[in-house]
Amino acid sequence: MLEVKSLTKRYGQFEAVTSVDFALEPGEIMGFIGSNGAGKTTTIKMLATLLEPTHGTALLNGRPLDGNDLEIRKQIGYMPDFFGLYEDIKVWEYLDMFATLYGVEVNDRPRVIDEVLELTDLGFKKQAFARSLSRGMQQRLCLARCLVHNPTMLLLDEPASGLDPRARAELKELIGELGRMGKIVIVSSHILPELADFSTVVGIIERGQMLAFGKVNDVVRSLTPAKKIQVKLLDRGAEASMFLHSKEHVSGTQFLNPNEFRFDFTGTLEDQHALLKAMIDAGFPIIEFMDEEADLEDLFMQVTKGALN
């Protein structure tokens, strides 16, 4: 389990990350979202023990993620946002070097290397020089490198950048698989929809502050001031709209056609149920009454804009 408590990083006077709190259970995949300069990399580096927090702590299974503790690093797989590969090293040699570094037994190394290459779809490049790989393949090699020591926690800083759509889909698949293997995974990105598919939780960070953290749907709800409900009737559309507006928590009707419209609703789920019941009791011929999926992209834009104001 990862517990992050009031994690703060200051560079001189500038506070890049301000008192971030969250906790992740094994198997949870956290989508870590924020715009450029929000503090994602800084937070991830603190968890990778690469940066010393100014305040606060992070515990992995009760053990502090401390820069002086070499053993704890064996439980972490960290994929940086930018990285370079050595000039004269082959793909398998690169993995072998890190497997050795992380204490994988000499007899296990060939098997482990084949496994991670298989997992990242790089088996056919085993004998190639790492530098000769394409950008996306280097990205995958870096991910393979993070896996050789079977870490408990994976920190992936924008792993999807530079990947083609197919590789992206495969990466999502792979990250999901890592979650099912019981690992704690943190994946950062600028793009919320990209993460929503496989993340079990999301954290939204802006200007160093964690604006929201929780299950994808909960976060979306907590961030959406008013949700939109779409109603479709057989008949009496205009009348239904007027009826609704006499009720609490309802505003802003927008007609799609005479018998179909959407309105903004700020009440709780109970209020929503009461509202639907009242409409049915009043005899309106309702055939659809549904929450509109919040557009994650819109939401992200809305949230980040809010932070900048």
Binding site: T49, L50, E71, K74, P80, L85, F98, R145
Partner: peptide, 9 residues
């Protein structure tokens, strides 16, 4: 490539 070494044990 320094970070991957600093993150290693």
């Amino acid at each position: 490539s320094l970070e991957q070494l600093l993150a290693a044990p």
